[in-house]
């Protein structure tokens, strides 16, 4: 697999008033890789996600997303919904955001909104000519069924999303993101609250999304079992700064990372970060 970058983050800084949430962050996510962002609580991981998916506009910096065909998108200039629609970046949330009152299947059809909108003549034509739209909807249902099968939710297709157990809701959120046919999938703590067995299943799912669907993944995760096993590359943040980057093996042995996670004297941290950079 050729290692061309799908997402390039250059000198991104995000300030909230006087608070610097992210300070001059640069990293690259390779195509077809699982890139993890880790760091202690409050390190700015979710802020990075919110900048990538357009919920925040970074104060400075450039976020470039490149498709296989060479088309580039500057994410800091796109509206949040256009980032999904055109740049094809999908995301999930740390605190699950499903359409709880809609069925599992409906959730996945909402994810295919833009395709279906086009197919239904912006819904107005289909009011009078539903037969023209029906085959397209069936295609959408097939895609939904494919992802329900992959995530083991097929039996729950007609259940309200809110009635699913926690682990299933997490999987449904991933399935919903996948139904937007993304190039880059951003997952914000997908393993949070999962038991070891579910966490193992999640690993398999993410690896298969990378290998079989050929989709790049950007992952925020606290569960080191997940991160170390499946990541191709890891970026470590602390207080909004990148303190380390590398393969799981490199990061595991990095003194700055150990210092950030375990907590040490300030001078030691300075020494360590100085050493790492």
């Amino acid at each position: 697999m050729s290692a061309t970058p799908i997402l390039t983050v250059e000198h991104m800084t995000m300030r909230f008033g006087g608070l610097v949430a992210i300070d001059d962050l640069s990293f690259v996510a390779e195509r077809g890789h699982i890139t993890s962002i880790i760091g202690p609580n409050g390190a700015g991981k979710t802020t990075v996600f919110n900048c990538i998916t357009g919920f925040y506009k970074p104060t400075t910096g450039r976020l470039t997303l490149t498709h296989e065909d060479g088309t580039t998108y500057f994410l800091e200039r796109l509206d949040d919904f256009r980032i999904n629609r055109f740049a094809r970046v999908a995301r999930t949330f740390q605190n699950i955001r499903l359409f709880t009152g809609m069925t599992v299947l409906e959730n996945l059809l909402v994810a295919q909104h833009n395709t279906l909108m086009h197919a239904s003549g912006y819904s107005l034509l289909a009011v009078f000519m539903p037969h023209l739209y029906r085959p397209k909807e069936n295609d959408a249902v097939e895609l939904a069924k494919y992802w329900l099968d992959r995530t083991g939710l097929l039996a729950h297709a007609d259940d309200p999303a809110g009635s699913l157990p926690y682990g299933a809701q997490r999987r449904l959120e991933i399935a919903r993101a996948m139904c937007t046919r993304p190039k880059l999938l951003c997952l914000d703590e997908p393993a949070a609250g999962l038991n070891p067995k579910e966490s193992e299943e999640l690993n398999r799912l993410l690896v298969s999304i990378r290998d079989e669907e050929n989709i790049s993944i950007l992952l925020i995760e606290h569960d080191m079992g997940v991160v170390m096993k499946i990541s191709d590359r890891i970026v470590v943040l602390d207080y909004g700064k990148k303190i380390a980057e590398g393969t799981p093996e490199e990061v595991r042995n990095d003194p700055a990372v150990i210092a950030a996670y375990l907590g040490v004297e300030d001078e030691e941290v300075e020494q360590a970060t100085g050493g790492a950079q």
Partner: peptide, 25 residues
């Protein structure tokens, strides 16, 4: 039952999630 109607209901359920799915709310 058409995409726009599902988008209405999805918007009622969670507007932010709608925007991450590429829906122009």
């Amino acid at each position: 039952r058409l995409p726009v109607g599902r988008a209405w209901e999805a918007m009622r359920e969670d507007e932010i999630a709608c925007r991450t799915l590429g829906i122009n709310t």
